[in-house]
Design a protein around this nucleic acid. Sequence first.
DNA 1: GCTTTGACGTCATACGTATCACGTACGACG
DNA 2: CGTCGTACGTGATACGTATGACGTCAAAGC
Lengths: 321, 321
Amino acid sequence: MSKRPTSRDVARVAGVSQSTVSLVLAGKSEGRVKPETGRAVREAARRLGYRPNLAARSLRLGRTRTVLLVVPTLTSPFFGAVYTGAARVASERGFGVVVHPWTDEAAPARSPVDIEAIDGVLASSLGGGVAGFGDVPLVVLDNDPADPATSVNFDVAGGMRAVARHLADLGHRRLGHLAAAVDTWTFRVRAEVLTETGALTAREHCAIDVAAAREAALALLDRPDRPTAVVCDDDLIAAGAYKAARHLGLDVPRDVSVTGFDDILVATALEPELTTIRLPAERLGAQAMTALLERLDGQAPPDVSLPAELIVRGSTAPPAP
Amino acid sequence: MSKRPTSRDVARVAGVSQSTVSLVLAGKSEGRVKPETGRAVREAARRLGYRPNLAARSLRLGRTRTVLLVVPTLTSPFFGAVYTGAARVASERGFGVVVHPWTDEAAPARSPVDIEAIDGVLASSLGGGVAGFGDVPLVVLDNDPADPATSVNFDVAGGMRAVARHLADLGHRRLGHLAAAVDTWTFRVRAEVLTETGALTAREHCAIDVAAAREAALALLDRPDRPTAVVCDDDLIAAGAYKAARHLGLDVPRDVSVTGFDDILVATALEPELTTIRLPAERLGAQAMTALLERLDGQAPPDVSLPAELIVRGSTAPPAP
DNA sequence: GCTTTGACGTCATACGTATCACGTACGACG
DNA sequence: CGTCGTACGTGATACGTATGACGTCAAAGC
């Protein structure tokens, strides 16, 4: 239960000064410390199991080389991909990434930036948590480009237009929309684009959740002018639509076509596999991290928009004649 | 672009000393500072937008009141629930939680404990990353109780026995096992329990991934002495089994019963809904955090085992006669 | 023989906070 | 009048690190 060794302890054991230890372990001893001495220092550090005190280092340097990724939930595979992209870029530049789940509603007692000493924040706009980060450099994911913060997002409108065109080409004239009951930019755009097509005949709102989506889909499908295609704001919502269709004795895609959004794992777990929009989540993470690191360098990176690609699978077909 | 204000700046503005600012903002000014002065300090802090420097505080106090949750992946809803439970308990005690994805294979350049200044680690054993945390207090999730570190886990053996009994009661005599190709305690236990039943006739290994599971399931189902029930190590693997069954023209559960493990979201997204083992992930997180905080208090909490409950849904039925 | 140069290190200091040990009034009390 | 107690603060310091400004000593150069 002895105390954790400090650089001074290492210095004592190696028979040098603390400064020298710091120099050697930082790799800045080139030409200033005899190779032999350097080895002795490293050996002593190893023997004592020395690990630098990160708090002290941060205090001294005024930065932590760590950024925080704020996500609305850990339960979505989508953010796993975002993290992967972000972490790869960060790692190349010697930065670390930690993750903190956070939404406005379920805000913990301490805001994410009060939890840890960090240099910057990458925040998802889902859940709306864009404010409250103080003056920490910030890049927002999937956010309204009109927002002052630097944002990196998907071409959601383009993706939704591709869905609409795909369904129109198949011959669908009555579209139903299962919209996420979340008021953020990305979902507002989806609704607007669909409305503009002129083919929309019904819309229901629900939580991003299979059971809730099933209920909403029942309301949408169990009506006289039943839509021949259901456009869903999220793949999970599409899973609920499948269940509702099955419950009503409707076959997907023969009786009703279904489309999703995101191309997460369930898209291919469903039967038939889901026609959906693939969002390059990993690229999003990478681009956002690149932008954030540029901000940390004092630059002002431009907003970025990434393409959203239509993936046609088995859940869409021409409507029954 | 002015510098971030320090407690000394606040002191200057409020016309008091830095010590007083610290006292007031820490809420320890009771009877030592005039209420009026306290108000002035708080007002000055607010005006300047003062936020304490966490690095300096950590250095001074020798602790950060932050713990790190290490998970193998962010793509699993399971760990979302673990986090929720852990964060709730931590928050009650004034601790914050950050998350870091990590596996042995995809180890980033810097180990999680080198990323941030933290007081303790909650690590998932999946991926095996139990070593390499130095002397930081550690609690391991879902790990072999034989391991020296404090562990909090599920009664995996009990859960698997419940599955075996359920299938035996239905009349199944030939079980196939779709095992996760991951060598950790939790999966070893599942395999052992199934082997002991004596009813196991075939086993295939695959990654925890729908596509891989589908291939493995095809190998399992496309053979003369086809198992009448397929026991899967994970709900995602079960999703692959569904696909394989469908591909072979087999109906679930009429021609083949399928069981999962975890009761994550896909379990109810599948059709028919999946009979599976529910693991109380949120309780796991809460219990583990409780244990970790006890360790931080210098205690030595005992290992904990949480019950695993069989949830019978539509994917299991008596075998065809 | 005296200065210069280079190689090899060390000294001292600052980062921002929390806290222990001291003041300094001022009224009360004997 | 002297002493004590209380209310209200402040001064000084330490936490562990990184780094710019200084030695020191021997060999080389003039």
